[in-house]
Amino acid sequence: MVRGTFMMNLVFIALYAFMAISNSQAEGTNTSTSAILITVDQSGKGDYKKIQEAIDSVASNNAELVFIRVKPGVYEEKVMVPADKPFITISGTKAADTVITWNDSGDIFESPTFSVLASDFIGRYLTIQNTYGAGVKAVALRVSGDRAAFYGCRILSHQDTLLDDTGRHYYNNCYIEGDVDFICGNAASFFEKCHLHSLSVGTGAITAQRRMSPAEDTGFMFFGCKITGVKTAVLGRPWGTYSRVVFVFTYMTSAILPQGWDDWGNSADQLRTVYYGQYKCSGRGATTSKRVEWARDLTSEEVEPFLTKDMIDANAWLRSAPTSFKKKALSANDTKN
């Protein structure tokens, strides 16, 4: 690419760095000094026109930070970050302007629009959507790698919108929308200042957490979030015997039904091992007086383990934005694109 284009890209990166300052505390204390810069631009003024092409250009077993800058546009493609390509960041500048979309349904591991299998992945300011529609499993985002973080993203579908599959994950200021089990899986995840919007018109569950054993240190933790809906919904139902979901300082509108949770056909004996709780939540939907008897209104002592990101060891891996960028050396095959 010509030098002028590269300099223009650096201007956009400076804008990104400015936005990242507001999230500095959320991004942890690990400092990232430099990253390889790759630009995706549908107009042909970047290094690649497709996001998947940019990912494919990263070497297997990559050990360097790679920052894939995606220019505004609607990218109709199915994207996968394979397990052998860690340390990748994919970033737009505004989620509403950078849309990754596909239309697929069926198997939850095959239908996702965007799949993250690698560790140490970061997604920023992206809309990730599956437009297949209601009534079937249609995953927008699958996260199966360890140490993954998402900032300011919009994740949209109906059933199983976010397959939060396995690993330690962090979501900050994200908007997540769906109608049935739209945050599901068995990851250990901390959702901070996220907006959960239910499209359910009955008793659709927001979460379906799949913790299967008390030995598994997994669960969904929602801190300072907001829940809205088009009609009515429940907070969750147990996909796993030891399913664990906790809401803290979360605003719940009247979209949340008084019972709060659904038993998914489990007996009272089976539900004894489920851990569903809330602490100091607000809004008409947060009232606990009519909650199911196996839900917990947590005390200050009980909630303490869920008040920080220590449950996902965040200080060990959440990293701040790079402070400098270097151009990726293009191969002969790259220059033909």
Results as ranks from 00 to 15, higher is better:
278 Q>G: 06
204 G>K: 15
75 Y>L: 07
121 F>E: 01
300 S>A: 15
29 T>E: 12
28 G>I: 10
23 N>I: 06
238 P>M: 09
162 L>S: 08
126 L>E: 03
244 R>K: 15
92 G>V: 11
74 V>S: 13
258 P>F: 05
236 G>Q: 05
51 I>T: 01
45 K>H: 10
196 L>I: 08
185 G>Y: 06
159 Q>H: 12
198 S>E: 02
196 L>V: 07
77 E>F: 09
40 V>F: 11
235 L>K: 07
92 G>C: 04
116 V>Y: 02
331 S>Q: 07
171 Y>A: 08
169 H>D: 04
260 G>T: 03
289 S>E: 11
79 V>N: 05
268 A>W: 00
153 C>K: 04
205 A>R: 11
57 S>K: 06
125 Y>Q: 07
8 M>T: 14
301 E>P: 00
217 D>N: 14
200 S>D: 10
251 Y>A: 09
109 F>K: 13
230 V>D: 10
219 G>F: 08
268 A>D: 14
283 G>T: 03
11 V>N: 11
6 F>M: 09
204 G>R: 08
302 E>T: 01
314 A>H: 05
320 S>G: 14
190 F>E: 00
326 K>N: 08
128 I>G: 02
66 V>R: 03
86 P>R: 07
241 T>M: 09
180 V>S: 13
257 L>S: 04
204 G>E: 03
159 Q>S: 15
139 V>Y: 03
329 A>N: 09
150 F>H: 05
53 E>V: 00
71 K>Y: 13
274 V>P: 00
25 Q>H: 12
193 K>Q: 14
183 I>W: 09
4 G>F: 07
312 I>K: 05
271 L>P: 08
102 W>K: 07
22 S>V: 04
123 G>L: 03
1 M>V: 12
183 I>R: 05
131 T>V: 13
9 N>T: 12
